[in-house]
């Protein structure tokens, strides 16, 4: 039986030499002590994400200004230090503080990103494990199911769901989550198959070690990498796709300061007020980058275990 895609990826899944992975992780064999040192990049990424999470949980702590307070006379103010709480990152078309809106927008934005990624990961992991651990018939069936999900790309699925249940953030999140699930599932299934083929499970059983423990012990280091890479990218991606729906007029509800909606709304003022879209865009990209940097760090350490 053949799969329609990802076949090669899963069969040559990176069941790599432990030493080699270790070397790469620690900067090409430059000493294993560097393994757990926290680099400057990771520290910055961590700080940014912590700030984002704090903003999401308690935006009032970071921003003293109401993100919905309008002031038409202050509309389109460029970034300046004149009145930092309001104008540090500029103001939008209604004179609202973009800084404050980004801080208050962290909650809804991260919620969209995290929920979509969680839906994708959970569904993907469930399907992947199920397919990998079951017999050929189930595997075949699950694979066809994944094909169906693959055949309905993210935005297409979102638009289709909008036709069924109408526009909204929930529709968007669900669609983005569903469309990322098959990618995760394929990776996990590939790993499970590779480990099953390796004979380790049988050996472990003979040795009296729990097969599940064995599976996790071998799967985690190799799956964690690609999964984290996909998941961390997916976090930013979900926000970006949600913003595409805002652009198409089918997204977040105003005046909620969701980053994607801000980016979409600011785009038409790109020539006159670039900060309106660049600032929330930076927030999204920095989130994705920080998550990726941390994800890689975790991946390195997991591999080194």
């Amino acid at each position: 039986m053949t799969d329609l895609s990802f076949r090669a990826a899963e069969q040559q899944a990176p069941v790599v030499d432990e030493q080699r992975a270790d070397d790469r992780a620690s900067g090409r064999g430059a000493g294993s002590r560097r393994r757990f040192r926290i680099g400057a990049g990771e520290a910055l990424a961590g700080a940014y994400l912590i700030a984002a999470v704090v903003a999401a949980v308690a935006p009032g702590l970071l921003s003293p200004v109401d993100p919905l307070a309008i002031s038409p006379s202050q509309a389109f103010s460029p970034p300046s230090l004149a009145d930092p709480a309001v104008t540090l990152l500029g103001t939008d078309e209604s004179g609202r503080s973009i800084l404050s809106r980004i801080i208050h927008g962290a909650g809804p934005s991260l919620l969209i990103g995290a929920s979509a990624t969680a839906i994708g990961l959970l569904l993907g992991a469930a399907l992947g494990l199920f397919a990998g651990l079951s017999g050929r018939v189930v595997d075949f069936a699950v694979n066809r199911l994944l094909e169906v999900l693959f055949a309905l790309p993210g935005l297409l699925l979102a638009l289709f769901l909008i036709v069924i249940v109408g526009p909204g953030v929930v529709t968007t999140t669900l669609a983005v989550g569903l469309s990322t699930a098959p990618g995760y599932a394929r990776i996990i299934r590939g790993q499970v198959l590779a480990i099953r083929r390796s004979g380790y499970i049988e050996a472990a059983t003979v040795l009296g070690v729990s097969p599940v423990r064995r599976l996790i012990r071998h799967m985690l280091p190799n799956t964690a990498g690609p999964l984290l890479a996909l998941g961390t990218l997916g976090l930013g991606q979900a926000i970006v796709w949600a913003s595409a729906l805002s652009y198409l007029g089918l997204g977040a509800v105003p005046p909620s300061p969701e980053w994607g909606a801000m980016l979409a709304a600011g785009r038409i003022y790109l020539t006159t007020a670039w900060w309106m879209s660049v600032m929330p865009g930076l927030a999204i990209v920095l989130t994705a980058m920080s998550a990726t940097a941390l994800g890689r760090g975790v991946q390195r350490r997991v591999r080194a275990l």
Binding site: L68, I70, E93, S94, P255, A265
Partner: peptide, 11 residues
Amino acid sequence: AEQSLFEQIQA
């Protein structure tokens, strides 16, 4: 611009 105006009316 009109949608922004509606947001301002809302505020």
